[in-house]
Amino acid sequence: MLYETMMVVVILAGLVILGSSRIRMYIRMAALQGVVLGFLPLALERSLPAARTALLMAVAIVLKGVVFPWLFTRAMREMSVKRERSPIGGYSGAIIFGILAFILSLWLSNKWVLHPSLAGRTPEIAVPAALFTVLTGVYVIMTRKKALSQAIGYLVMENGVWIFGLSLAGEIPVLVELGMLLDVFVAVFVMGIATLKLQRGFGHMDADRLNELKG
């Protein structure tokens, strides 16, 4: 029940990102996903976590729940961008995409044959929830025009991968996860700097106008 509730929260947060136009909302929802997913090992293990897992949890929660939102909010304020404007496909289209993506994820996860060692362990909703979250992130990157939104989309995608990793891998490969987190951290950092430069250089941060760079 706890695990399912967590997944519902994560999926709903993804839907809110799809349907909202406020970048502040994106940041909050991505942070919510991050924090909820940070506690995922608890729901899976139903016991006190080992030290390594606890460390991973702590790092993930602090990074996704505090550091990234702070970075994003700062970038948002400095660049004074508050809203996404006219994304490709519109917001209704995004929600319809969300519904279809969820159905597709369910269908795919039905076809998916899990390794027998995981059969009883992995909650059934894990695979569709993870797929859905990854698809949400990809969709946000594809359709939103502000570089900041795209960076958040990247973060959402990572959240989906995190569900996969935690729920499917029998033993959590701490190093892998930590490496991934580091990746995201660097990516967010670089994107933050890049969008900031973009903003200063061009007076806007619309990624679809980057072709101005071609000279």
Binding site: V8, I11, L15, G19, I99, F102, I103
Partner: peptide, 10 residues
């Protein structure tokens, strides 16, 4: 309203 539909699918 579509969001309501999404909730139902979920």
């Amino acid at each position: 309203i579509l969001a309501g539909g999404a909730l139902c699918v979920l």
